[in-house]
Design a protein around this nucleic acid. Structure first.
Lengths: 168, 168
DNA sequence: ATAAACTTTCAATATTTATTGAAAGTTCGA
DNA sequence: TCGAACTTTCAATAAATATTGAAAGTTTAT
């Protein structure tokens, strides 16, 4: 397989993979393209290589920037903006974890905490099950939350070292 | 807040949460409903409580069963089928991890392995970056894969004990 | 101050994904 | 074997989501 074909495969699979995880296909593909581009590229480049419109590229690059995965780069003496992706996969992963935690997990845990305090007969079967389920999810979620916090702060070698210890 | 309202909240939030993770809203809501139902319930019950059609409920319950999160239950002396969800959140989590790993992570790792073997000048900047990116993702993915395998096999107390050790 | 180069916006449109509900299929007791 | 009770299927439809592209906005060099 040659580079061009492999690149295509990678971008397309990364896009499909993304959709399974609630990430818009084009955004994932742009990210993939940037991940395999050794140098920063322009919106125009992305439009050509992925065959999507200017507006779409603009929107999705902005989103990638808000996720902290892509940076604007101004090349000296150039008028237009270039973009480049963080290439260190550990950093990419922790950044995604950090954002998803902030945007989704933390609000969910907050809600679950509130839902645990319902009025009503604690002997009632439905009340009992509701509280048990909600508190079960909350406890598990809190564990995950703590673990992810440590991961975000850790560097890769620390994490791998500990994993090794954990699973030896 | 009373039970009915809290239940509504929980189901609706769980549905919204699901959509952020590539899970169809109704499926997540049905799961939520089953999680807070102390006893098995019928398709008819789900239709009424969530106000969705018979076909939709049938389809999504089937999907939940294929994910190993919900079981068919035949009550003695009853003609119709009842459904109940696994309530142990640890089991729910490991089951989801197991399935997503099988359906998504493993195929992706397989593909990445293939993409690493491209023909071409290993000194070429683009080839170099492509291989670096793909192998970086593959290595990280393999670590995650191994860790998730252990988690799937472990039981909760083992895992929590080790986590504690890991993060003390 | 102007205009070219470039970026952003967003209403219209297209695409994808989810839902409905009636018809077909199945199971089971009498 | 019949038919009532129940489940499944799937083509049609609705709803949600993503994409386009032209117009408006911005920046910069002269």
């Amino acid at each position: 397989m040659k580079l061009t074909e492999a690149k295509q495969q990678f971008i397309s699979s990364w896009g499909a993979f993304g959709t399974h995880w609630g990430i818009n296909r084009t955004m994932a593909q742009i990210h993939a393209l940037l991940l395999v581009s050794p140098d920063p590229i322009t919106q125009e480049d992305v439009m050509e290589q992925l065959d999507v419109s200017r507006g779409n590229v603009n929107m999705n690059i902005r989103e990638l920037i808000s996720w902290g995965l892509v940076d604007r780069v101004i090349l000296p003496g150039e008028r237009k903006e270039y973009f480049s992706a963080e290439k260190d996969i550990w950093k990419v992963a922790t950044q995604i974890v950090k954002e998803r935690k902030k945007r989704e997990l933390d609000p969910m845990l907050k809600l679950l905490g509130q839902l645990e305090n319902i009025e009503g007969d604690k002997k009632d079967k439905d009340v009992k099950q509701f509280i048990a389920t909600v508190s079960g999810i909350r406890k598990f979620g809190n564990q995950a939350d703590q673990m992810l916090d440590k991961m975000i702060k850790a560097d890769e070698s620390w994490f791998l070292g500990n994993l090794l210890r954990l699973f030896k």
